[in-house]
């Protein structure tokens, strides 16, 4: 008689879509099994004090999971935004949990931080608190990096990484992004509302993906690693990025200045991502968007810009 192994209760990381998964599922499957310990979990019911003013439902974790776990046997601090609650937006409590985590990392000095971004930016119902939280987080990321902490961002969620989330992401030591991982400051609808459809047609999804999506960000050197849309791929990328050199200081800022100046010089007159990709030497720029992840990674390794040590 043959024995059939019991099926696991949940899908393994290799077949779980990052985009579709919740913040808690991403966290659990990203880290070593059973290693996650949450700080101020939902049982503490530390909800936003502001949403009731707008008669809006609260969430017991305010849309962010923070805690500690291990990745490949080494301890890491981790924060995961829930893009399905208020678009993953930064409010007072949500933001303070990430600020506190980064300050803890700074004080410890050796434990890296993973930030699983999934955010539309500031939560407008608490706009002043959310905007200030983002400013505090940016400063806390820099302070942690100055203390020798690596801060790695993982981006591939439903809400992308918009508004102040995009600025925080650009403060990280390195980023891994999937095709779905849009990174920008102004979202498509915001540009269209302010400047009209001639400037940006937010319903043109292909335009959104190639302007803000993960492939373009990887080719530009705005992200360090491109990954397929599975939790396993993000885990592998996080492990690889944590193994790279970190640090922060004048030398890195000077290199970043040169890197961004070069980008403006080389691509500043390009009207579209397709023009940028062609200018990089990619012969079939129009085929990039439809390339499967493995083929795109080969292409990006050959033609994409590198931001390593210059961010």
């Amino acid at each position: 008689m043959s024995t059939t192994p019991l099926q696991p209760l949940t899908a393994p990381a290799t077949v779980t879509s990052w985009y579709e998964a919740s913040a808690r599922t991403r966290t659990r499957l990203l880290l070593d099994p059973g290693s996650f310990v949450e700080f101020i979990g939902p049982e503490k019911r530390e909800v936003s004090p502001h949403l009731k003013v707008f008669d809006l439902p609260e969430q017991f974790d305010d849309g962010i999971v923070v805690g500690c776990g291990s990745l490949g046997g080494a301890k890491v601090l981790i924060a995961a935004q829930e893009g399905r609650f208020m678009g993953g937006a930064f409010g007072e409590v949500h933001g303070a949990k990430l600020t506190g985590l980064l300050r803890g990392a700074r004080d410890i000095g050796s434990m890296p931080v993973l930030i699983l971004f999934d955010t539309g930016g500031v939560r407008l119902q608490e706009a002043n608190a959310g905007e200030l939280a983002i400013a505090e987080i940016m400063r806390a990321v820099i302070e942690a990096r100055c203390a020798g902490v690596k801060v790695v961002g993982l981006i591939g969620g439903r809400s992308g990484c918009y508004g102040g989330g995009g600025l925080i992401a650009a403060c990280c030591s390195s980023l891994a992004v999937s095709e779905q991982g849009r990174i920008a400051v102004s979202g498509p609808e915001v540009i269209e509302t302010n400047r009209g459809t001639e400037e940006f047609d937010s319903r043109d999804r292909a335009l959104v993906w190639r302007t803000m999506g993960g492939k373009h960000r990887r080719l530009l050197g705005a992200a360090d690693a491109f990954v397929d849309d599975t939790v396993q791929a993000f885990r592998d990328a996080a492990l690889a990025l944590l193994g790279e050199a970190g640090g922060f200081g004048l030398e890195i800022l000077t290199k970043e200045q040169a890197r961004l100046e070069a980008r403006l010089r080389d691509f500043g007159t390009c009207a579209d991502a397709l023009d940028i990709w062609s200018a990089m030497g990619i012969s079939h720029a129009d085929a990039v968007s439809s390339l499967p992840a493995d083929e795109f990674i080969t292409l990006a390794d050959a033609f994409g810009r590198i931001s390593h040590d210059a961010r």
């Binding site: 995009g166 400051v185 800022l253 500043g268 579209d272």
Partner: peptide, 28 residues
């Protein structure tokens, strides 16, 4: 921030964060 296709195409988030980082580094 300037809201345009060109700015986002070129990675406005990195440019804004870079300015913030330079100021924070100077301050420290």
């Amino acid at each position: 921030q300037r809201m345009s296709k060109r700015d986002e195409l070129l990675g406005l988030n990195e440019f804004l964060a870079h300015l913030g980082k330079c100021l924070i580094h100077a301050d420290r």
